[in-house]
Amino acid sequence: MKLAGSYQINLSKEKVWEALNDPEILKKSIPGCEEFKKNSETEFTATATNKIGPFNASFTGDIELTDLNPPNSYKITGSGNSPVGFASGEATVKLEDKEGGTNLIYEVEANVGGKIAQVGSRLIDMTAKKMADIFFGKFSELVSPKEISSSESSIEEKGGLEDQAKPKKQNQKILIFAGATLIVAILAFLFL
């Protein structure tokens, strides 16, 4: 299956990445996300559980980041398994400056198998879109200046400090989290 989309986030690229650096924000943004486990600089394991439609599945996805081109683009290769089937695929992610904010563009090519493939691509596509909206909606809500200025102000401070202190290494780390976030979100879409 193929899935593509883009989201406009009203923050600068750098700010978006800062926020992406916070595991708590990611956890809150991804539907059903339970944990990220870092296996190496570019390899991750992520777990999420979702109960939507006929399935209630906990799945684990292995993620690898390649073609790193900070801060513009990268590729995420991932595969996830659960009792209701599997998903494997590639996502290309691009970040662009747009209208004073950041436009995040993704393209996913994935193979899904098992029960999840059998429920029908129309249902999967529809649900994937819906899940993407939930993810980015939640994410924007959590990182937008209004919110940050109130209860979540510490996040901005933390992210900002880290970004300034060790830009290169931190960029990579940010990317990894961004990648992990996306692939888990994508796997979550596929597993609904």
């Binding site: 193979n111 899904v112 198998g113 493939a117 059998q118 429920v119 029908g120 691509s121 129309r122 249902l123």
Partner: peptide, 14 residues
Amino acid sequence: YDETGQLMTASYMD
């Protein structure tokens, strides 16, 4: 079937 052999028409949805 898709090119990987997944049955795409596995219910009355499709």
